[in-house]
Amino acid sequence: MNAVAEQKDDVFLPLQQRLATNPDGILEDIARTYCVSTLDVVRALPEAHRTIVAGDRFETIFEAVTGWGSILFIVHTPDLVLECEGPLPPGTFGRGYFNLHGDSPIGGHIRASRCKEIAFVSRPFMGRESRSIQFFNLDGDAMFKIFVRRDEARNLIADQVARFDTLRASL
């Protein structure tokens, strides 16, 4: 085994072991602890907790989620965790961006061409079941995340869970 492979195993094996016994936690915090990208952390999750597809499925996935009703849209950077609830608006490509249109608190312009991989993540978070679709850029950082919403009792909305599972299985 070469030195690079050994160094990778030095990080990834303990990370995989940690996630196998406890997949809970903030992915970005786990990435900082192990000095890897957030995408590396998602890749290290047990297979039952993640499905990863190519970023060229961006428009297909985005379009499907526009029919889910109100979702939780999160942008997590080292300096900010921005959460926005609302329906995911439709978008179109133009001038190098995927431009969001419609009457929603979620809006803006996404550089979809930088989306390398998209992960469907099902895992515990803060002790509760969660489902999210996470869009990763070329650097392995999350561009943004779409979470299945919770009801008043803090349970995942069943219709969105079914749509998430169906979309994940279709890819």
Rank of each mutant, 00 (worst) to 15 (best):
K116M: 12
D139P: 03
M143C: 12
R114V: 09
F164S: 01
A112D: 09
G91V: 11
L80S: 14
R150I: 10
K145R: 14
R123D: 03
R114S: 11
E85Q: 13
N99W: 05
S122M: 10
T38P: 01
V65F: 10
G102N: 04
I61A: 10
R163K: 15
V81C: 13
D29E: 13
I71G: 12
N99T: 01
I74A: 14
E83M: 14
V36K: 01
D79S: 14
A158W: 04
T166D: 14
E85M: 13
V75D: 04
G140Y: 00
F12H: 06
D165W: 04
K145W: 02
E129Y: 02
S122P: 08
I146Y: 09
P124H: 04
G127F: 09
E85A: 13
S170Q: 09
E152A: 15
L45T: 02
E129D: 14
S170M: 12
D56E: 13
S170V: 03
I52N: 04
L138I: 13
A3R: 03
G96L: 09
C84V: 15
R50W: 05
T60Q: 14
K8R: 06
H76S: 12
N22Y: 03
D165H: 09
R95H: 15
F58G: 08
H109N: 11
I26K: 15
V65K: 11
D103T: 04
R18W: 05
I118K: 05
I61D: 08
D151T: 01
S70G: 09
Q160R: 08
R154V: 07
D141E: 14
T92F: 15
A64R: 13
F98M: 07
L156V: 06
P105K: 12
D10T: 01
V121S: 08
S113L: 12
C84E: 11
P124T: 00
V11P: 02
S130D: 01
N2H: 03
L82T: 10
I52S: 08
V41C: 03
D141A: 15
P46N: 00
L88I: 11
I157E: 13
L156Y: 06
A112F: 12
S104T: 05
K116V: 07
A3K: 12
T166S: 15
I26E: 02
L27M: 14
F147P: 04
K116Q: 14
I106M: 08
R32N: 02
F125N: 03
M143E: 11
S70V: 11
L100G: 01
A54Q: 13
R131V: 06
L19F: 02
H76G: 00
N155E: 15
G102E: 01
G102M: 09
F120I: 11
P124D: 01
Y34W: 00
T92A: 15
A162I: 10
T21N: 10
S104P: 07
S170K: 07
R154Y: 05
A153I: 06
V81Y: 08
A3M: 12
L27R: 09
S170L: 13
R149T: 11
I133R: 08
A20G: 13
A54W: 11
D159W: 10
V4L: 13
P87L: 10
T166F: 09
I110W: 07
H109I: 08
Q16H: 02
H49K: 10
L82H: 15
R123M: 06
V11C: 06
G86Q: 03
N137W: 03
D24T: 00
A112K: 10
